[in-house]
């Protein structure tokens, strides 16, 4: 191997986001950032710190608590030549702006034939102490909307590379960050054109017995489970992180399922009508005869998120749940 070494730095997830924003705003003056507390305070968790000082008030704008108009700033701004990044502080608040996301941004190209280069960044509060109105995983809702793309990175490097691609994309992208992942470190490539393509899954761990498709916080948990299953049971687990939920890289997922014949899907959302349900449907439609065992979903129980972190973590699926699910699929003939 004589590959040129790409310089990397160990960064936290939030730093990956921050770096992507800085690089894209340096590169293209049409890129702006608007949202609640993004400017002077640098975001409630510091994700956007330093941006206002660097790019000024017109390009990094603090908005009132007006989510519908906030997304409208992005839709209208994009329609007249900007490439806006709008930040909805918590994913739960996106529901307040649903008309602008679903009825307006996602349909603009269909009505006009024109681009809608809008990135809507938001943060799912999973892993934090904020309770039932700040911690929900409704990513699957948005995946039902034609015209919208949905990205959900699980680590700092993917967050950076995917956000840069989202900003350069000519369609509206909902970009879902996760509170519980913000401090997590990973080596992040430092060249300016570190772009990860939307719609391409990442096989985080190769394996031959079971395919685990995991998203958000469950990716790291699935990797830990795979390690344990290898050591304790000698089971070889393949872990796939789709990274982009819409459009979904079904090809990579199904190729793996065909090889292993066993499928587990792990997510923090509740099960009914969820991302996991969609992956099951794809597997059943495409390779039912190649499945050696019924697929298993690892998900949160169908109850609301409690506020105290120990309770919230008790509700969230963990490494043990993934291990148990994989063992279940292996027990089936």
């Amino acid at each position: 191997m004589t590959a040129v070494e790409t310089p990397t730095r160990s960064l936290k997830f939030w730093q990956g986001i921050n770096q992507a924003l800085v690089e894209e705003m340096e590169r293209d003056e049409r890129v702006v950032l608007v949202g609640e507390d993004v400017g002077r305070p640098g975001g409630p968790y510091g994700v956007t710190r330093g941006l206002r000082d660097r790019f000024g008030d017109l390009r990094v704008r603090d908005t009132p608590i007006s989510e519908a108009v906030l997304v409208g700033l992005g839709v209208g701004g994009a329609a007249v030549g900007l490439r806006p990044v709008v930040e909805i502080m918590f994913f739960d608040f996106a529901m307040i702006a649903m008309d602008q996301i679903v009825n307006q941004a996602a349909k603009y190209r269909y009505f006009s034939g024109a681009s809608m280069p809008l990135t809507i960044r938001t943060m799912c509060g999973a892993g934090g102490p904020n309770g039932a109105q700040h911690s929900q995983n409704f990513e699957a809702w948005y995946c039902t909307v034609p015209g919208l793309k949905v990205v959900m990175p699980s680590n700092a490097a993917d967050a950076k590379g995917l956000l840069k691609s989202a900003i350069r994309d000519d369609d509206p992208v909902l970009f879902i960050e996760t509170l519980g992942l913000l401090p997590a470190r990973r080596e992040v490539p430092q060249e300016d054109d570190f772009l990860l393509p939307l719609g391409v899954a990442d096989t985080r761990r190769a394996g031959s017995d079971v395919t685990v498709v995991a998203i958000g916080r469950l990716v790291d948990r699935a990797l830990a489970a795979a390690e344990r299953l290898e050591q304790e049971d000698g089971i070889s687990v393949e872990v796939i992180d789709p990274r982009t939920l819409a459009p979904l890289d079904a090809e990579t997922i199904l190729a793996s399922v065909r090889r292993t014949g066993r499928l587990v899907v792990a997510q923090e959302a509740t099960s009914p009508f969820s991302f996991a349900s969609e992956v099951f449907a794809l597997a059943v439609e495409s390779c039912l005869s190649e499945l050696k065992a019924p697929p298993v979903r690892v998900a949160s129980p169908f109850v609301n998120v409690p506020t105290p972190v120990p309770l919230a973590e008790a509700r969230a699926p963990g490494v043990d749940d993934v291990v148990a699910a994989v063992r279940t699929t292996m027990r089936e003939a």
Partner: peptide, 20 residues
């Protein structure tokens, strides 16, 4: 098709013009 749906977009268009 949404009553009031254009109002946020108008705000964004005006912001875009100002920012440019």
């Amino acid at each position: 098709g949404i009553v009031g749906g254009g109002i946020p977009i108008a705000t964004g268009a005006a912001y875009g013009m100002q920012a440019q």
